[in-house]
Protein backbone atom coordinates (compact mmCIF):
# COMPACT_ATOMS: atom_id res chain seq x y z
CA UNK A 1 0.00 0.00 0.00
CA UNK A 2 1.17 3.50 -0.75
CA UNK A 3 1.65 5.87 2.15
CA UNK A 4 -0.57 8.87 1.55
CA UNK A 5 1.98 11.22 3.19
CA UNK A 6 -0.92 13.40 4.24
CA UNK A 7 1.09 15.32 6.84
CA UNK A 8 3.64 16.23 4.19
CA UNK A 9 0.81 17.31 1.92
CA UNK A 10 -0.46 19.54 4.74
CA UNK A 11 2.95 21.23 4.89
CA UNK A 12 3.86 21.45 1.22
CA UNK A 13 0.40 22.06 -0.19
CA UNK A 14 0.79 19.09 -2.49
CA UNK A 15 1.64 15.45 -1.97
CA UNK A 16 5.30 14.46 -2.30
CA UNK A 17 4.21 11.94 -4.91
CA UNK A 18 2.85 14.80 -7.03
CA UNK A 19 6.17 16.62 -6.84
CA UNK A 20 8.09 13.50 -7.83
CA UNK A 21 5.67 12.96 -10.68
CA UNK A 22 6.26 16.48 -11.91
CA UNK A 23 9.99 15.83 -11.98
CA UNK A 24 9.41 12.54 -13.78
CA UNK A 25 7.18 14.18 -16.36
CA UNK A 26 9.72 16.98 -16.86
CA UNK A 27 12.41 14.47 -17.78
CA UNK A 28 10.16 12.26 -19.87
CA UNK A 29 8.37 15.00 -21.79
CA UNK A 30 11.53 16.85 -22.74
CA UNK A 31 13.29 13.65 -23.70
CA UNK A 32 10.43 12.86 -26.05
CA UNK A 33 10.19 16.42 -27.39
CA UNK A 34 13.88 16.70 -28.10
CA UNK A 35 13.98 13.30 -29.73
CA UNK A 36 11.30 14.53 -32.09
CA UNK A 37 13.37 17.60 -32.84
CA UNK A 38 16.44 15.41 -33.46
CA UNK A 39 14.43 13.24 -35.83
CA UNK A 40 13.16 16.26 -37.77
CA UNK A 41 16.66 17.69 -38.05
CA UNK A 42 18.02 14.39 -39.34
CA UNK A 43 15.20 14.09 -41.87
CA UNK A 44 15.86 17.63 -43.10
CA UNK A 45 19.56 16.84 -43.48
CA UNK A 46 18.70 13.70 -45.43
CA UNK A 47 16.49 15.64 -47.80
CA UNK A 48 19.51 17.73 -48.70
CA UNK A 49 21.49 14.65 -49.59
CA UNK A 50 20.93 13.78 -53.29
CA UNK A 51 20.00 10.17 -54.03
CA UNK A 52 19.62 9.30 -50.38
CA UNK A 53 18.27 5.80 -49.86
CA UNK A 54 17.54 6.19 -46.16
CA UNK A 55 13.76 6.35 -45.70
CA UNK A 56 11.98 8.41 -43.06
CA UNK A 57 10.57 5.15 -41.70
CA UNK A 58 14.08 3.90 -41.02
CA UNK A 59 14.96 7.12 -39.24
CA UNK A 60 11.78 6.71 -37.23
CA UNK A 61 12.91 3.23 -36.18
CA UNK A 62 16.32 4.64 -35.18
CA UNK A 63 14.62 7.32 -33.13
CA UNK A 64 12.39 4.77 -31.42
CA UNK A 65 15.40 2.58 -30.64
CA UNK A 66 17.32 5.43 -29.08
CA UNK A 67 14.25 6.75 -27.25
CA UNK A 68 13.36 3.34 -25.79
CA UNK A 69 16.94 2.91 -24.60
CA UNK A 70 17.01 6.37 -22.98
CA UNK A 71 13.66 5.78 -21.35
CA UNK A 72 14.82 2.49 -19.86
CA UNK A 73 17.93 4.16 -18.47
CA UNK A 74 15.89 7.00 -17.13
CA UNK A 75 13.38 4.70 -15.41
CA UNK A 76 16.23 2.87 -13.64
CA UNK A 77 17.80 6.12 -12.52
CA UNK A 78 14.49 7.57 -11.49
CA UNK A 79 13.60 4.87 -8.98
CA UNK A 80 16.64 5.98 -6.90
CA UNK A 81 15.67 9.60 -7.34
CA UNK A 82 12.15 8.83 -6.17
CA UNK A 83 13.39 7.02 -3.07
CA UNK A 84 15.71 9.87 -2.07
CA UNK A 85 13.08 12.52 -2.66
CA UNK A 86 10.29 10.69 -0.82
CA UNK A 87 12.38 9.52 2.12
CA UNK A 88 14.85 12.32 2.68
CA UNK A 89 13.72 15.51 0.99
CA UNK A 90 9.93 15.54 0.91
CA UNK A 91 9.19 13.73 4.17
CA UNK A 92 8.57 15.10 7.66
CA UNK A 93 10.36 13.09 10.37
CA UNK A 94 8.02 11.53 12.96
CA UNK A 95 9.32 13.73 15.79
CA UNK A 96 8.56 16.97 13.94
CA UNK A 97 5.33 18.81 14.65
CA UNK A 98 4.14 21.51 12.28
CA UNK A 99 3.63 24.93 13.94
CA UNK A 100 -0.11 25.00 13.24
CA UNK A 101 -0.52 21.75 15.19
CA UNK A 102 1.21 22.93 18.37
CA UNK A 103 -2.20 23.28 20.01
CA UNK A 104 -2.68 19.52 19.88
CA UNK A 105 0.44 18.92 21.96
CA UNK A 106 -0.31 21.78 24.36
CA UNK A 107 -3.89 20.67 24.84
CA UNK A 108 -4.06 16.90 24.31
CA UNK A 109 -7.73 16.59 25.21
CA UNK A 110 -9.59 13.38 24.53
CA UNK A 111 -13.22 13.49 23.44
CA UNK A 112 -14.33 12.69 27.00
CA UNK A 113 -12.12 15.37 28.55
CA UNK A 114 -13.44 17.89 26.02
CA UNK A 115 -17.00 16.98 26.91
CA UNK A 116 -16.21 17.48 30.60
CA UNK A 117 -14.75 20.90 29.83
CA UNK A 118 -17.75 21.80 27.71
CA UNK A 119 -20.03 20.67 30.54
CA UNK A 120 -18.15 22.89 32.98
CA UNK A 121 -18.49 25.86 30.66
CA UNK A 122 -22.21 25.25 30.27
CA UNK A 123 -22.62 25.02 34.05
CA UNK A 124 -20.70 28.27 34.52
CA UNK A 125 -22.94 29.93 31.94
CA UNK A 126 -26.01 28.69 33.82
CA UNK A 127 -24.62 29.96 37.11
CA UNK A 128 -23.84 33.36 35.59
CA UNK A 129 -27.38 33.61 34.25
CA UNK A 130 -28.77 32.59 37.64
CA UNK A 131 -26.64 35.14 39.48
CA UNK A 132 -27.71 37.82 37.00
CA UNK A 133 -31.37 36.93 37.71
CA UNK A 134 -30.66 36.98 41.46
CA UNK A 135 -29.05 40.42 41.11
CA UNK A 136 -32.10 41.69 39.29
CA UNK A 137 -34.40 40.26 41.99
CA UNK A 138 -32.32 41.84 44.75
CA UNK A 139 -32.36 45.22 43.03
CA UNK A 140 -36.12 44.95 42.55
CA UNK A 141 -36.53 44.24 46.27
CA UNK A 142 -34.44 47.29 47.13
CA UNK A 143 -36.83 49.41 45.07
CA UNK A 144 -39.83 47.85 46.82
CA UNK A 145 -38.20 48.52 50.18
CA UNK A 146 -37.81 52.19 49.30
CA UNK A 147 -41.56 52.46 48.68
CA UNK A 148 -42.50 50.53 51.84
CA UNK A 149 -40.02 52.48 53.99
CA UNK A 150 -41.43 55.74 52.67
CA UNK A 151 -44.98 54.66 53.55
CA UNK A 152 -44.01 53.50 57.06
CA UNK A 153 -42.06 56.68 57.71
CA UNK A 154 -45.07 58.68 56.56
CA UNK A 155 -47.22 56.86 59.16
CA UNK A 156 -44.64 57.47 61.88
CA UNK A 157 -44.50 61.10 60.88
CA UNK A 158 -48.29 61.24 61.12
CA UNK A 159 -48.12 59.91 64.70
CA UNK A 160 -45.42 62.46 65.48
CA UNK A 161 -47.60 65.15 63.96
CA UNK A 162 -50.56 64.09 66.10
CA UNK A 163 -48.46 64.16 69.24
CA UNK A 164 -47.03 67.51 68.22
CA UNK A 165 -50.54 68.99 67.86
CA UNK A 166 -51.43 67.72 71.33
CA UNK A 167 -48.30 69.36 72.78
CA UNK A 168 -49.02 72.64 70.96
CA UNK A 169 -52.39 72.70 72.70
CA UNK A 170 -50.86 72.16 76.12
CA UNK A 171 -51.31 68.42 76.31
CA UNK A 172 -47.96 66.70 76.55
CA UNK A 173 -49.69 63.49 77.64
CA UNK A 174 -53.16 62.85 76.32
CA UNK A 175 -53.65 60.07 78.83
CA UNK A 176 -52.87 62.32 81.78
CA UNK A 177 -54.94 65.16 80.41
CA UNK A 178 -57.88 62.88 79.77
CA UNK A 179 -57.57 61.40 83.27
CA UNK A 180 -57.38 64.93 84.71
CA UNK A 181 -60.43 65.98 82.66
CA UNK A 182 -62.38 62.91 83.74
CA UNK A 183 -61.51 63.46 87.41
CA UNK A 184 -62.42 67.13 87.21
CA UNK A 185 -65.70 66.30 85.52
CA UNK A 186 -66.43 63.83 88.30
CA UNK A 187 -65.56 66.50 90.90
CA UNK A 188 -67.83 68.95 89.10
CA UNK A 189 -70.63 66.35 89.06
CA UNK A 190 -70.14 65.81 92.82
CA UNK A 191 -70.23 69.58 93.51
CA UNK A 192 -73.40 69.92 91.39
CA UNK A 193 -75.02 67.07 93.37
CA UNK A 194 -74.02 68.84 96.60
CA UNK A 195 -75.42 72.13 95.45
CA UNK A 196 -78.65 70.46 94.30
CA UNK A 197 -78.98 68.67 97.67
CA UNK A 198 -78.36 71.83 99.65
CA UNK A 199 -80.78 73.85 97.55
CA UNK A 200 -83.57 71.23 98.17
Amino acid sequence: SVSPMAYEAQFFGFTPQTCVLRVYIAFQDYLFEIMQVVENVILKKLEAVPGCKVSPLRIRKCTEKFFVFMKEQFNKLFSNLETVLLQLVLSIPPNVLLPEDKVHEQYPYSKEQFQVLQGEVQELQRQCRAEAAAGQALRAELEEQKVVQAELEKILQWFAGLESICREHGTSSVKESFTFLTQNSKKLQDVLKDVEKKSR
Partner: peptide, 14 residues
Amino acid sequence: EHLQTSQAEVLSSK
Protein backbone atom coordinates in the same frame (compact mmCIF):
# COMPACT_ATOMS: atom_id res chain seq x y z
CA GLU B 1 -33.40 30.20 38.52
CA HIS B 2 -32.26 32.47 41.35
CA LEU B 3 -33.15 29.86 43.92
CA GLN B 4 -29.91 28.05 43.06
CA THR B 5 -27.68 31.05 43.50
CA SER B 6 -25.33 32.37 46.14
CA GLN B 7 -28.16 34.44 47.70
CA ALA B 8 -30.85 31.79 47.56
CA GLU B 9 -31.49 32.08 51.30
CA VAL B 10 -31.99 35.83 51.17
CA LEU B 11 -34.22 35.62 48.09
CA SER B 12 -36.37 32.81 49.45
CA SER B 13 -36.98 34.70 52.73
CA LYS B 14 -38.36 37.84 51.08
